[in-house]
Design a protein around this nucleic acid. Structure first.
Length: 422
RNA sequence: GGAGAGAUGGCUGAGUGGUUGAAGGCAGCGGUCUUGAAAACCGCCGUACGUUUACGCGUACCGAGGGUUCGAAUCCCUCUCUCUCCGCCA
């Protein structure tokens, strides 16, 4: 949510923002509605002031006859107020609908482009493995090592179903435990968050109204989260924080649900695109300052890079183009891991900041040193998603004998084992 | 699923039609006292929008929406949420 005052004063900027993000929103209509809204409101306030004034003189009137006369005179004013209210209502309804669609303004450094194909590579790290043998993809490797069971997954869940079994499950636990340690050392407080949430939380993060197709919903009109960011931000809804509490840094764990309704044809095999997965997410709330947001944005992205580096998986970082940004995002980096058998990089992390877009919707404020209330700034970045991380991990570290070399940092969490073998 | 109670400011808690934007208490801020601190005492202390050079003024807000009324925190309706007890269940 942007401030209507900001939109009015920076109309061209916001129009360009929508254009850059390839989003449709009728800002001219919004301004027309806002003009009406303001005019009606001020007319209404004037009438109400008159009404309040008259009411208090009725209250203090002692002469009963005079009192009845005054009450009779108020009838006309009452009707006028009612008329203005009736006129205002539809204006407000439409105004609110459009306001929910207005995108956050992307940063100057965000490149133009329509989709992830236009994202700009800003960094590459690691040596891509050169296999002297007939390397296999993660599906073949993991099935052979009894780490995953797709057949039963589909039997039980249906399309895109999977079970992680044996060392596949162990490896997932190892990654979670290692990540908890790694990010804990950086000052993150762990949180296990609700995966079923009220609708308002998804409006808060900006996933609704625009991404409704991708979100599961219950018969009670609750929603399944696609990321722990939703519940973690909701935790602070309608709260007034002390400045001394900031920055707040959470490492939130949750199952994540994505319908991916429009993507039946893409990545139908393997663990890349699944309906249900697990994720550790970094969520940060900081002071309302662009510099602070930028500082923490770089930091949380770097945290995940360091985590991947510690595992030794080759990756690259891209700066997302305008068309690949969510409605509320100012700027976003994706970290993509090398997938040898596909010969391409695959996204495993997104780091974004929102300024006060989300906190306005959640009404999350803090008391500044001068006593004024400000909307905090919010940011989030994937710490690690499982099982998607396994795709790169097993493909990059596969050995000629069909085993997988376990990265050293994970070995303490895998009972000291150096490799996963048949 | 059944029965009942409730939703008021940062917190607690009064308030059932007319200076109630809302008593009292706590917390916070300023001051007196004190070498300093504590205690005690005095004072200040909601948010948003509009308007004004400014002091200020206006409007709205007591879970949400609608209604009754000249006038609603207070009466009526609908919804949402919370709590307690019973049932079911990990």
């Amino acid at each position: 949510m942007l401030d209507i005052k900001f939109i009015r004063e920076n109309l061209e900027v916001v129009k360009l923002a929508a254009q850059k993000k390839h989003m449709e929103v009728d800002l001219d209509r919004l301004v027309v509605l806002d003009d009406k809204r303001r005019a009606l409101m001020s007319a209404l306030e004037e009438k109400r002031a008159a009404q309040n004034k008259a009411s208090s003189s009725i209250a203090s009137a002692t002469d009963d006859e005079k009192r009845q006369e005054m009450i009779a005179q108020m009838q006309g004013l009452k009707k006028e107020i009612q008329d203005i209210e009736d006129e205002l209502k539809p204006v407000m309804d439409e105004w609110k609908t459009i306001m929910l669609q207005v995108p956050q303004v992307p940063d100057m450094t965000v490149p133009d482009g329509a989709s992830d194909e236009d994202n700009v590579e800003v960094k590459t790290w690691g040596e891509k493995p050169q296999f002297s043998f007939d390397a296999k993809d993660h599906i073949e490797i993991m099935i052979a090592l009894k780490m995953v069971d797709f057949e039963r997954g589909v039997k039980v869940h249906g399309f895109r179903g999977y079970y992680l079994i044996g060392d596949g499950a162990r490896l997932s636990w190892a990654i979670w435990n290692y990540a908890n340690q790694f990010f804990g050392n950086k000052g993150f407080d762990p949180m296990l968050v609700p995966a079923i949430v009220r609708k308002s939380n998804l409006y808060g993060t900006g996933h609704l109204p625009n991404e409704a197709e991708d979100i599961y919903k219950t018969q009670d009109d609750d929603y399944l989260i696609g990321t722990a960011e939703v519940s973690t931000m909701g935790y602070y809804a309608d709260e007034i924080l002390e400045k001394s509490q900031l920055p707040i840094k959470h490492l939130s764990f949750s199952p994540c649900y994505r319908r991916e309704a429009g993507s039946h044809g893409k990545d139908t095999k393997g663990l890349i695109r699944v309906h249900e997965f697990y994720k550790l997410e970094q969520v940060v709330l900081c002071e309302a300052s662009h510099e602070e947001s930028v500082k923490f944005h770089e930091w949380i992205n770097r945290n995940t890079e360091e985590f991947i580096e510690s595992l030794g998986i080759p990756y690259r970082t891209v700066l997302n183009c305008g068309g690949d940004l969510g409605q509320g995002q100012v700027k976003k980096y994706d970290i993509e891991l090398w997938v040898p058998l596909e010969g391409t990089y695959r996204e495993i992390s997104s780091a974004s900041y929102f300024h006060d877009f989300q906190t306005r919707r959640f009404n999350t404020r803090y008391r500044d040193t001068d006593g004024t209330l400000r909307y905090a700034h919010s940011l989030n970045c994937t710490a690690i998603p499982t099982p998607r991380i396994l795709v790169s991990l097993v493909e990059n570290f596969q050995q000629e004998d069909g085993s997988i070399r376990i990265p050293e940092v994970l070995r303490p969490y895998m009972m000291g084992k150096e490799a996963i073998t048949a």
